[in-house]
Nucleic acid binder design. Structure first.
Length: 739
DNA sequence: AGACAAGGTATTTTT
DNA sequence: TACCTTGTCT
């Protein structure tokens, strides 16, 4: 039995409002997941709604898992009837049943980003498109955008007119879609698009699901795109019991087609919608909340909200500017260790957040050296690793040989001496006869042009056929073991003996245990079932709650989580906000970065540390970055800069020169921190060189000054170096000497 | 056909 | 810096 008294007024109102459309505007940390779970409990316990009739949609598997757990906890018996699912897995479930209505096999495969890229490369070759001019990525992005808006190739064609590039995209789109269908495959976007298509073309199917899902809830509504919005509104059209929860300030997936307008559209599409705002924050201290509000208030296009809390004011926010990114990592590592030793925080209370995945490496290194356990979330997807994909493609091939991509991936793994030339011949044969690649392989003996290569292909086909017959009486993990044994995959890695090879073997072991777990936890385990589950999983969701480790992740993956002690790192103009968003024509790109910053700040419960570095290695080059504008947007009274130099692992190599630009900047930083005007490296009164002069740079050598811009805080000097070409740099940092 | 070297290019963010 | 593509040599 759940206790509704523990909810505040607004929350309770939201829980009790079960009939008709409801828009819940829930600020960060306002307990929205609690509301959703209590709402589900209320529907079942008080309204006697059959759990079977309830659908809760979240965005990530992580969120779905968490919600599932909490629903189970609060509802107890009978809760497993409730569908708690991501958009994508919900669609897969529906399509597995009805995809045949759209001309697909119900055993279709799902293509991930890598598969899409491979496919696109193929198509560009087929259509004789020069990928130097038109990048595969560009086509994929364009197609994905169209799908987000529910426009198929036919609909897109009407928009082409005379535009040459659009014409090309359209041709590629058509071919891409046709190939997917031929391969009996769908990409991630298709899962949504095809489900909508299914509902639009098959009223009986639609009605079935409308009747089934009489109560629908959508979490993270601000991240839905048009297609997802359409999907939900069609489903809810009959009973109109749709509850969406979102926060426009936390919309951070515009780049993926998320449409903030959906929040506004909701009130348009459902005119009778009730709107409830949740504004009390239960997560963070007053200081952290004030900082977050300070930053987000700089966004223009937002709904005004007043997030408040009854929590104590808490500690000030630490802001730390380091000289280099290495020092930044040292600082964070040392700080974590210090607080752990003091007993203030456990490792698992700490999270290090950053803008891009590439930034994780430094922290990993330092944590490793300091012997602090950590866990990296995201990054290279477990299932995207080469060794895992190889083996999965074997399983896929055994399961459904219509997936050409999988077959082609493994045909030469291990090396079977089948080269590109032979593959092309098989491919042609397959296209001519309109059969799958694998079927063409089976027919190899009849492909005259192949010649001797036939002898190499035939054993492969026999091998796969053998596996197929095994699949009937082997369990999935036995089948995989058989593949590993027969291909000598692991043996080959063992022979290699490198650390990397060992790590790969460990990953393979991990895969085997995952399969075993799957088989133990599923009623009717099957090869297809396992592959399906795997296709939609982003990263290993081993949330070993008991193990105690620091968490490293991007700001994006941090959404929806909370940590007592958060480190927000790399707050530099050019890193966060990223270079691209600063230079974008669309000012909303910067606003999205700011929302991302807001998300980051509001992850913190008790302590927040913000760090940045003056000097950072990016793509192997040292770059100089000014402090992020987001730091300046935090009211100064909330901030402490931490005067004490934290001891780092390596002793300083040399006494810093007090007159160096760094020391000057440091002085400026410490004395009058957070007056925006003081956030500057000390600008030289004048430069001893001008445009046209020859200057020498410590690393780049000699070059000619092309331009000097007085940027207010420093001179931005453009120099054309003889060896490395044109570089822009700040005078105070670059230490240019006239020659 | 496969191994290896050289050169070019890329960085947001994720289901 | 690190990966991936391309070209060359065996």
């Amino acid at each position: 039995m759940s206790n509704y008294d523990s909810l505040n007024d607004c929350q309770r109102q939201a829980v009790f409002h079960t009939e008709g459309p409801l828009l819940l505007l829930a600020g960060a940390g306002s307990g929205k997941t609690r509301v959703l779970t209590h709402r589900i409990a209320y529907l079942i316990e008080e309204k006697e709604v059959n759990p079977w009739n309830i659908l809760a949609i979240t965005f990530t598997n992580k969120a779905a898992g968490e919600m599932r757990e909490r629903v189970d906890q609060i509802v107890g018996f009978g809760s497993d009837g409730v569908w708690v699912s991501t958009f994508h897995s919900m669609c897969v479930r529906i399509l597995r049943r009805f995809a045949d209505r759209l001309g697909y096999g119900t055993n279709f495969t799902i293509y991930d980003g890598d598969d899409q890229k491979t496919l696109m490369k193929d198509i560009c070759k087929r259509l004789e498109i020069d990928t130097k001019v038109y990048k595969e990525k560009m086509f994929l992005a364009a197609i994905s955008h169209q799908k987000d808006e529910l426009r198929g190739p036919i609909e897109y064609e009407t928009q082409v007119f005379g535009d040459f590039t659009k014409r090309k995209i359209c041709d590629v789109y058509k071919e891409y879609q046709a190939t997917l269908k031929r391969n009996n495959a769908m990409d991630f976007d298709d899962l949504i698009v095809k489900t909508v298509e299914l509902f639009r073309t098959c009223p009986d199917v639609l009605e079935y699901y409308q009747d089934r899902f009489r109560y629908i809830m959508v979490d993270e509504y601000q991240d839905t795109n048009t297609a997802q919005f359409k999907l939900v509104s069609i489903l809810a059209d009959k009973y109109r019991n749709l509850c969406v929860v979102g926060d426009d300030d936390q919309s951070i997936y515009k780049f993926r087609g998320a449409n903030i307008e959906n929040i506004l559209n909701f009130e348009k599409d459902f005119e009778d919608a009730t709107v409830i705002k949740l504004e009390q924050n239960y997560r963070s201290t007053q200081n952290i909340l004030d900082a977050a509000n300070g930053v987000i208030s700089h966004n223009i296009g937002r709904k005004e909200k007043a997030l408040w809390t009854e929590n104590e004011r808490g500690e000030q926010i630490t802001v730390r500017q380091c000289m280099t990114s290495f020092e930044e990592a040292d600082y964070v590592t040392a700080d974590i260790r210090r607080r752990k030793n003091k007993g203030e925080f456990d490792y698992k209370d700490c999270a290090i957040l950053y803008r891009t995945n590439a930034q994780s490496r430094l922290f990993e290194e330092k944590l490793l050296m300091a012997n602090i356990p950590y866990k990296l979330v995201g990054g290279i997807n477990f299932y995207a690793r080469k060794e895992i994909k190889d083996l999965l493609c074997y399983l896929k091939t055994v399961d459904n040989a219509k997936d050409d991509l999988a077959v082609r991936r493994i045909i030469n793994i291990p090396k079977r001496g089948i080269g590109a030339a032979s593959l092309a011949k098989v491919q042609n044969y397959a296209v001519d006869r309109d059969i799958s690649f694998y079927d063409a392989l089976k027919d190899a003996a009849n492909i005259v042009s192949l010649g001797r290569a036939v002898a190499k292909i035939e054993p492969f086909v026999t091998f796969i056929q053998t596996l197929r017959s095994q699949a009937e009486f082997y369990s999935v993990h036995e089948l995989l073991q058989s593949i590993i044994d027969m291909t000598g995959y692991v043996t080959e890695l063992q022979a290699e003996g490198t650390d990397e090879a060992k790590a790969r073997i460990e990953n393979i072991d991990e895969l085997i245990s995952k399969i075993v777990t799957y088989e133990e936890s599923t009623k009717e385990p099957s090869l297809s079932g396992f592959l399906e589950e795997v296709a939609l999983v982003a990263d290993i969701d081993d949330q070993d709650e008991d193990s105690n480790h620091v968490v490293l992740m991007t700001l994006h993956s941090a959404k929806g989580l909370e940590f007592p002690n958060v480190y927000l790192t790399g707050l530099e103009e050019g890193v966060f906000p990223g270079y691209a968003s600063i230079n974008a024509d669309d000012p909303d790109e910067l606003e999205e970065e700011r929302r991302l910053c807001y998300v980051g700040i509001t992850r913190a419960m008790k302590r927040l540390t913000i760090t940045c570095a003056k000097q950072r290695m990016v793509r192997g080059e040292t770059q100089y970055y000014p402090i992020s504008r987001f730091i300046r947007e935090i009211p100064i009274r909330l901030v402490q800069t931490g005067r004490e130099q934290v001891k780092t692992e390596q002793p300083a190599k040399k006494m810093p020169d007090v007159h160096s630009p760094y020391m000057q900047a440091k002085k400026a930083f410490k004395s009058k921190a957070f007056d925006p005007n003081q956030f500057r490296v000390k600008k030289a009164d004048s430069l001893d060189y001008t445009v046209g002069d020859q200057v020498r740079h410590i690393k780049f050598g000699v070059g000619t000054v092309e331009n000097i811009i007085d940027g207010g805080k420093d001179y931005e000097v453009t120099v054309n170096f003889e060896k490395v070409g044109v570089k822009k740099m700040f005078a105070a940092f670059a230490k240019l000497k006239k020659v």
